[in-house]
Design a protein around this nucleic acid. Sequence first.
DNA 1: GGCGGTCATTCCGAAACAGCATTGGACGCC
DNA 2: GGCGTCCAATGCTGTTTCGGAATGACCGCC
Lengths: 110, 110
Amino acid sequence: MTAGPACTGRREHARLRSVSLTHIQSFIAVAEEGHVGRAARRLHLTQPPLSRHILALEDELGTRLFERTRNGMRLLPAGEAFLLHARRILAEVDAAVHTVRGVAGSHTGG
Amino acid sequence: MTAGPACTGRREHARLRSVSLTHIQSFIAVAEEGHVGRAARRLHLTQPPLSRHILALEDELGTRLFERTRNGMRLLPAGEAFLLHARRILAEVDAAVHTVRGVAGSHTGG
DNA sequence: GGCGGTCATTCCGAAACAGCATTGGACGCC
DNA sequence: GGCGTCCAATGCTGTTTCGGAATGACCGCC
């Protein structure tokens, strides 16, 4: 038996061991800006870690999300598909936070 | 009052600086198990970090999500509201991964 | 009063992360 | 064709974050 966590005995939510909201945010920024460096500034980050975010995401998904051109990054079809989901995920998180605050407020503050 | 990075100069996706998919996963596990320790085992984790995840989430949301009883953790209304969103978020992530793999496969594998 | 079970806290070592400096590739210019 | 420019990728290092063992605090039970 493997010694690592690869037992797969549990059927939790599959792996999202690596996909993080930070990576998703980074992906969206790069997709919208078309440049890693510019997206980095928008996120108050520097270029190298942002570049690594994208690489990690692509590695996790097993597919290239962007085409590297000499003008920057262009979305590939897989990237465009992911972008739709990515936006929805962040919107869901936003909604979750908002909802909880609303519920809490109505219960504590009337 | 908190003097954090409340500049809000950028109107990105607001803050989700702290809310992470790991925390959401932890929250769901605790909500379903009703015990931090048991949820920890299910996640192949130990109790202290999991306890911290919940505390961090509650801190981030500004509200208690669970009622601490001597028998474990019981969901408060705010927690129940968050649970619905939490499940949807993870499902969205799952769908995103699935979709991207599908798109990539159809483009590379024919 | 001792015991078992629960979550919260403290401390420490390891892994992850961001940033700096640099490299490598592609194109335009002269 | 060599050189400078613009872009992303990589090596390396300091810092931060994170997980885990041990411990504390609380409560019911016997």
